[in-house]
């Protein structure tokens, strides 16, 4: 089975990469000033306690052993403790991850459902009003996308839709202050409130998600939008499309087939953007006060709380590598030429 072989080989590459990630996060934290044991216990803790903890964390051993100890702790799901609120970092990350994932998912959904169709339409050479309108939109968007800072756009949206128009809630988090969070099933409030059948909470969760998701889609959808449009245009100009026209194939078939050709590069860019977002959308989380893992990391940096930073960097890097893996596998499935070349 060439497919299985490819997946196997691709996973094999992942192993040294994950090792490297752990080495880098380990080194990063060793480079940070201060003694982790002292930091974890706080400045007022007695010296004996610090020595004891240092021994428990095996910080008194040479660096290679320390690294091994670090790996062992990681494998047991122990990401260390935050010294600010002495909670388990793994626990903190788990509690906050759904907020970040919900934001990314909602943003990417907007990109795929709203922006990709516009990009496809704007690529068509048709002279109809719809194609002309989308071409104009796509020109304007192409100019703006990537130039506007996400944190600022978020603020502007809050100003217009909350302060001026009053259509959206302010940056108070994922739910109104008086709303109770739904029982945790998926961790996505939008889904969980629906599962619980609580429509008021659902509306609240959705309206709190809307502005951050739009901000994310607008700022980070740019590369996807441009790539979809460019590769669709290229596909529609290509020899095989002209030949298909020459064979009198229905317009619908020709467009569908061209979309197939536009898909692989679009999938790659979507993957790269999605992989970037976990660590890249931290400012949107901060502006809207979503309390996801990105905001957690930003707060930890300002309080010099290293264990959470280490945990976040590790999770984000692994997440990115996983997304890259999925993209490679997707490409392998979409494009028969790749499977021919690799296997």
């Amino acid at each position: 089975m060439p497919t299985l072989k490819y997946i196997g080989r691709r996973l094999l590459v992942l192993v040294p990469q994950l090792f490297l990630i752990s080495i880098i996060t380990f080194t990063l934290v060793r480079m940070l000033p201060g003694d982790p044991a002292r930091l974890e216990l706080g400045p007022l803790a007695p010296e004996e306690g610090v020595v004891l903890l240092r021994h428990q964390l095996r910080l008194d051993e040479p660096l290679p052993q320390q690294y091994i100890a670090y790996l062992q702790r990681l494998l047991q799901g122990d990401f260390g403790r935050s010294w600010v609120n002495s909670s388990s970092v793994a626990q903190d990350l788990l509690v906050r991850a759904p907020a970040t994932l919900e934001l990314i998912t909602a943003g990417m959904l907007i990109v795929l459902v709203v922006m990709v169709p516009v990009a496809l339409l704007s690529a068509s050479p048709s002279r109809g009003w719809l194609a002309r309108a989308t071409r104009r939109i796509s020109f304007g968007y192409g100019l703006l996308a990537g130039a506007l800072p996400d944190f600022w756009l978020g603020l502007v949206l809050i100003f217009f839709f909350f302060s001026v128009l009053g259509w959206a809630p302010g940056p108070e988090g994922r739910l109104a202050i008086l709303d109770l969070p739904p029982e945790r099933v998926t961790g996505f409030y939008v889904v969980d409130t629906l599962l619980a059948g609580n429509f008021d909470s659902f509306r609240s969760a959705l309206s709190h998600l809307a502005l951050p998701a739009i901000t994310l889609a607008f700022v980070y959808g740019g590369p996807i939008f441009k790539m979809v449009r460019a590769s669709m245009e290229a596909a529609l100009r290509s020899d095989y499309t002209i030949y298909a026209e020459g064979l009198g194939l229905p317009r619908r078939t020709i467009l569908l087939w061209a979309m197939r050709n536009a898909a692989p590069p679009a999938v790659v860019v979507t993957g790269v953007v999605a992989g970037y977002l976990l660590g890249g959308a931290v400012l949107i989380e901060t502006v809207f006060n979503l309390n996801g893992i990105g905001q957690y990391a930003v707060q930890s940096i300002t309080t010099a709380d290293y264990a959470p930073i280490q945990g976040f960097v590790l999770v984000a890097a692994v997440f990115t590598m996983m997304v890259y893996l999925i993209v490679d596998l997707l490409q392998f499935m979409i494009d028969p030429r790749i499977s021919a070349r690799i296997t």
């Binding site: 990469q17 490297l20 990630i21 880098i24 990063l28 480079m31 940070l32 000033p33 992989g275 970037y276 976990l278 660590g279 890249g280 931290v282 400012l283 990105g294 990391a297 930003v298 940096i301 010099a304 930073i309 976040f312 960097v313 984000a316 890097a317 990115t320 590598m321 890259y324």
Partner: peptide, 17 residues
């Protein structure tokens, strides 16, 4: 791998160090 690290947080960590 280097590029898989969250750019923004990486820069923040460097500044923090």
């Amino acid at each position: 791998v280097v590029q898989a690290f969250p750019v923004f947080i990486l820069a923040m960590v460097l500044v923090a160090i």
